Structures are given as structure tokens and as C-alpha cells.
Amino acid sequence: MNRFEVFMKVIEKESFTEAAEDLGYTQSAVSQMVKALEKELSTTLITRSRKGIQLTADGREYLPYINNIRNAYWELLEKNKEMQGLESGLIRIGTISSVSASWLPKLMKDFKEIYPSVQFQLQQGGEYSEIVQYVKEGSVDFGFINPDATTELEKISLTEDEMLAVLPPNHPLAKNEKVTLTQLATEPYILLEEGHLNEPLEIFKQHHLQPNIQFRVHDDYTIMAMVENGLGISILSQLIMDRVNYRLVKKTITPPIKRTIGITYKNKKLLPIASRYFINFLIERFQR
């Protein structure tokens, strides 16, 4: 384990003790590696107090560079594994909750039946912009997003997902076969924050409508609980709604709202071999 990884783990856990437990090291060993990094950089990166640890001014300046080195180190290890063959590969994926809760488990299971030694590491993002950032900084190999969410990375569209109106069971619109955008625009609206690209808001805008946004939330399941409790209505992807137990009513919207789901990455040729194989596997699966 290199000192850059240890330092980032200390920052993540905000504790030398918890970082040591997570990494399987002694607290003394973790402390010594952080001190060695500080000595190399001729500065103090972290201060300790009763309230926990804090980055110094220099620590805040160095943090993004240390994180980049940590990620580059993992990429180096993956390249080494690639040289030894696909069997030992790690696939790092940035994913949104609707994908990780529905498609991804089955896709990973099927892929591991072909390559049983391949490992997966998932990094959840609340917004498309978070996934794009994960890809840019190298903490994941590729990510699931709406391809329209980035113009700076390579991307591939996989499929379309319809979005549905989500209503409390006793809502007056629950009796309708379908609901219109105009009807939804007058209701207290719970917005799923997805960064600068939000499919429902785009459709409202195209039809010169402004939803009555009362809440902004980053998690689909929190929104479902809020709708169940009568705090408002929302629009969520059919994908995320397929396997939930909340007391909700789902309605088709007219005109329909659909989002494209795809993957994005920096340069496919430079990806670890396991990730390249998995991307090809995804393309083949969705193009059947």
C-alpha cells in the first residue's frame, strides 16, 4: 500500500484509527506513512485535535495532486494485471442508482460466469456530473450517464428509459389513465437533482411550463418515501421503479419523457483490458 493511498484514506475516514482498521494496518504504521509524505513534501499536511483531523492550508493545496497520484498508481497496478491477463482484472464503474439497482447486478453476474476472477468496484454518484468527474479524475474506468451530460469525454448510447409520474395513492390524478405535463406542473414537485442536465425539466421547458418545485433531492428512494407521505409528486425513471415496495402510483406521461442511458470514458484504448471487455459485453447485450 503506498503512502498516497494511506493519506487519502485518512482524509476519507477523518481518523487515523479508522483508516488503519480499513487498510488492515496499525495506527502507528499509518501515522508513519503520513509523516513520511509530509517529510518528502517538506510541510505539514494534517493537524490533529480533540475534534479529529484537519487539513492544513498546504494540505488543501496538495490534496488534488495526491489524489491524482493515488489514482494513477491504481491504474499502474491495473496495467500490470492486464499484462498478466484478464483473469485478475478490476473493473471500476461510476454508476447512478437506477442502473446499479436494476441492470448492473445481472450484467456483472453474467460477465463473471465468463471471467470468474474479475472483480468489480462501484462508485455511486447522485448526479450525471459526479459520474463525469469520476471518469475525468480517473477514480473509475467508465460510468453510466445520459450521454448528453458530457461533451468532453467519449460516450456510447445503450438504450432508452421511459420516465413516469410518481403520485401518492390517494392523489386525484391517480385515477387517470395518463397524466399531462400541464397537470403535473401545478402540483408540489419533488425534483431529482441530476446536475446541469435534468430530463423532466428539459421537457417542461420545451412546453413552456414551470413545475412547482418544493423540494430538491439527490436520491431516488428518498423521493419515493416523500411521495408516499404525500409531500408532493415527482417524475422518476421506470428503471428505478421496477422493484420497489413503496405505496405509490405510477402513471404514463403525455407527451412521454424518455432519457438515454449510455456509458462514458476518456479513451477506450487506454482502459484496463477487463473494462474494455466489459464495455464490449454491455454493447453486445443492449444491441441484441
Rank of each mutant, 00 (worst) to 15 (best):
Y221D: 06
I240G: 04
A165M: 02
Y265H: 09
V132A: 08
K112F: 03
E130R: 00
V6H: 07
E75L: 14
E40F: 07
V179C: 03
S234Y: 05
K178C: 07
S129M: 05
T43Q: 12
V118T: 10
K250A: 11
V166G: 04
F111S: 05
Y134C: 04
S49R: 07
N67A: 15
L77C: 09
P64Q: 04
L192R: 09
S275D: 03
Y62A: 13
I283T: 12
V249D: 07
G126L: 00
R3Y: 10
I283C: 10
N146K: 09
N280S: 12
R285E: 14
D22R: 12
N176C: 09
W103D: 15
D141S: 05
L122D: 05
Q121F: 13
I96N: 12
N67H: 13
L231C: 09
P188N: 06
N212G: 05
P169F: 07
D161G: 03
M163Y: 12
L122A: 05
R276V: 07
N245S: 14
I261L: 15
Q27V: 13
K266E: 09
G143Y: 03
V34P: 07
L209Q: 06
V244A: 06
E127C: 00
K178F: 13
V99L: 04
V30N: 02
N245V: 09
R60P: 01
V132I: 11
Q287E: 15
I273V: 10
K268M: 10
T254Q: 13
L104F: 02
N170V: 06
E87N: 14
L173W: 07
S31H: 10
Q32M: 12
